[in-house]
Every structure is written in C-alpha cells, then in structure tokens.
Design a protein around this nucleic acid. Structure first.
Length: 377
DNA sequence: AACAGGTTCAACCGCAGCAGC
DNA sequence: AGCTGCTGCGGTTGAACCTGT
C-alpha cells in the first residue's frame, strides 16, 4: 500500500508551470496522447511528476475547457447539483461541459457558498439556517426525501461512471485528437422514469447501455399521498402537473451526437459561445452507442401535510430571484429569504422560498439548459 | 505610493478505488 | 488473496492579485 513517490522524488519541479513546460506537455499529448501519466514526463522531457502533468492537462491545458466567468445558468446548475450531490465536484462537473471539477470547486468555495450563506441558506444542507421554523410543516420531510433522491442520483452517477469506464475500455483506441481524459466528456443518457413501483430494466442496442435511472416515490400517509414522479431523460424538458397532485417531469432524449463530436484541437477555440454551449447540453443527452440502461432505484412514499411541488408556476423565477437579488444587491446582507417582515408572513415567505429552492433543484433534474434558452437568473 | 488585509485560483497533498500481477 | 502501481477525487495551500486605507 505504499504511496507512490510522485513529486517526492528529488529533482522534480513543483509549483507554477512555465509556458515552456506547457508547450512541451501540449506538444507531446497532441502527438502521442497522454498514455501513462507516470511515464509521460520523461518522454515529454518534463521535470515533473505524472500527477502534476495530468492535473495541468485536465485543469488547464486541455483544449475543450471553457474558462472565464461562470454564466448565471452555470451558477444555478452548480448550486442545484450541489444540493443534490454535495461536494462531489467531479459528478457536478459532468453536468457542466467544459468546466473542470477544480474550477467548479473553486467557484463554489469562493463565490457561491458565500452567496448562499448570505442568503441565510446553509451551503451544506441547502436549507435555511433557521430551519426550526420549518420543522413542523413537512418541509423537513421534503428535504429528507430529496436527500433520498440525492443518494439515488449519486448511485446513478456512479453507475454511469462505471459504464463510461467500460465504454472507454472497449473502445480504447486512443487518438490524440480525442484525448478524453475524464469521464465528464463522455456522453450520457439518463432518465428518471416515473414507474410507480415497477422495476424495469430496459436495454437498448449498442455495446453499451444508456444509464437510465428510475426514480419513483410512493409513500403512504394518513393524509395526503403525493407521488412525485420524476421523468427526466438526460436533457429533459417540460414539466407537467396533473390533477392528482402528481408532478410529472416528462423528458425526451432526442439527440444523437457522436461521441467524438468534440474536436480536440489543441490550438485555439478554448472558449465557445453560448449557443455552442447549448449544443453541448444537447450533446449530453445523446450517447455514442445509444445507451439504454434502466435501473429501478427506489420506491418510497412521500407523505406530506402539504403536497409539495404541486405547482410549477414561478418556481424557477422564484429561485432565480432568490439568487439574483443577492447577486445584484450584494450589499443587501442577504435578506432575500424574506426577512422584510418578521411576522408570520415572513415565516410563510421563508417556507415558500425554501420550497421554491428545492423545487428548483428538483426541476434541474428534469430540465435541460438546451430547453431554457433564457437564463434563469 | 505604500502597506495591510482579503480574495482568487492553480497546484499540491493524501487518500480511496481499481486493475493487474 | 494480497500486494503494488496508477488514476481520480476532494480538501487544502500559498502565491498572485485586488481593494481599501
């Protein structure tokens, strides 16, 4: 179990990379691909450890990295995914094409975490810090249920990662121009299918199956039964609320991008325009081998005094306002969580905002940026 | 202009998981 | 089954940069 010596080896350089080193690394990978990272530095003539080279490549030099300011939509995505997945930056990064986990992590720690804290939202739990106000009205239960969702989402992502790894192994004819170094650049198709308690393992053609998760919630309570049926097929669209207190996210997977749609040119084109980003979101929904993998993840019942998510109206808008208010008026002291009045209406607002917040998170699962051309912020 | 304190982010560290032997 | 090496991940660090005084 001995640790690999890595940079402990004497003579290996550490610290910031010089342009010359960057050039060497780029030139080598462009010509040969990275291959074994451990062996790379010697071959490329670099006095670095392989780990350092890999990091430099994946976080900085890789051509398909979008650098610069995060868009409002990206911010929202990060916040929502963080609520679902926690500090699983690599998993979050899979939903943000061209952004590295490191970049997302940094952005979270330096911007978003503080912004949420200012708003009175615990950046860890994504619940209002003064949660006692909500403990008796079912909202905590909502959060608990969402926590379950998060667990399943995590499981799904892990399953996807496995599939991706398998896929990469099978088609591992590495080409420098397709120097995919991370699972995040492999398309995935995901789906949350409302299926009651039905377990369905669906298989599609191709040598790999598309990760499709089935989430269903059906829990009994003395009072209201709410089935939250989430159907989110990768880049899903639309949300329907039927008359039975049932939320239905209906999505469709339509694209058929080829895995190698990304051109890994090593020069230029690092930053793509917004419409290209939209394309990338679309691309996420497709997968080279038209994957189809369905797992019935969970069956549970949500019992609620007040059925949550029974309406979608203004959901996104409210979430948007929550964050926008704060980011626009950054000196407001984060009062966007409705502290204008400290009476019962304030409490209600808090509840409402919290509900909207979590609704928006749920909605993320079903929504695709490609279908929300106008920023939510 | 100079300094101090705060912020950002590239890079490092250590650990865990996995594959091959 | 156990060992070893490699890779990826998340937490942390510290130099560079920014801002206020």
């Amino acid at each position: 179990m001995g640790r690999s010596p890595c940079c402990d080896k004497v003579g290996l350089k550490k610290g910031p990379w010089t342009p010359e080193e960057d050039q060497k690394l780029l030139a080598y990978i462009e010509e040969h691909g990275h291959g074994s990272w451990r062996a790379l530095p010697a071959k490329a003539g670099l006095q670095r450890c392989g780990k350092s080279c890999r990091l430099r490549w994946t976080n900085y030099l890789r051509p398909d990295i979008k650098r610069g300011k995060f868009s409002l939509q990206e911010e929202q995505t990060i916040i929502q995914l963080h609520a679902l997945l926690g500090n699983r930056w690599s998993a979050i990064a899979t939903h943000l094409p061209k952004r590295t986990d490191n970049e997302i992590k940094n952005y979270w720690n330096t911007h978003l975490k503080k912004r949420l804290a200012k708003m009175g939202i615990d950046p860890v739990t994504h619940k209002p810090k003064n949660d006692t106000l909500l403990s008796s009205d079912g909202q905590s239960k909502n959060a608990a249920n969402l926590s379950h969702m998060a667990q399943w989402e995590s499981a799904r992502l892990e399953a996807e990662a496995r599939l991706v790894r398998e896929s990469k192994l099978r088609s591992h004819s590495f080409h420098p121009s397709a120097a995919s170094t991370s699972a995040q650049f492999v398309n995935k198709t995901t789906a949350y299918t409302s299926a009651g308690s039905t377990a369905a393992i669906g298989h599609g053609g191709g040598d790999l199956e598309s990760p499709t998760s089935t989430l269903s919630f059906s829990e009994n309570n003395n009072n209201n039964n709410v089935t939250a049926a989430v159907v989110a097929t990768a880049a899903t669209t639309g949300i329907g609320v039927n008359s039975l207190n049932m939320i239905e996210f209906v999505g469709s997977s339509s694209s058929s991008h080829h895995h190698h749609h990304q051109n890994h040119h090593l020069t230029g084109g690092m930053i793509k325009e917004e419409d290209e980003q939209v394309q990338d979101w679309k691309f996420k929904e497709g997968i080279e081998n038209s994957l189809s993998f369905t797992s019935n993840l969970h069956d549970m019942t949500i019992s609620l005094d007040n059925p949550p998510w029974t309406t979608n109206s203004n959901m996104e808008e409210n979430f948007t306002n929550l964050l926008l208010n704060d980011s626009i008026d950054d000196d407001s002291g984060g009062r966007s969580l409705s502290d204008k009045d400290s009476d019962n209406s304030g409490t209600h607002d808090l509840y409402q905002d919290n509900k909207n917040y979590w609704n928006s998170i749920l909605n993320l699962v079903n929504s695709s940026p490609s279908n929300s051309p106008s920023p939510m912020f």
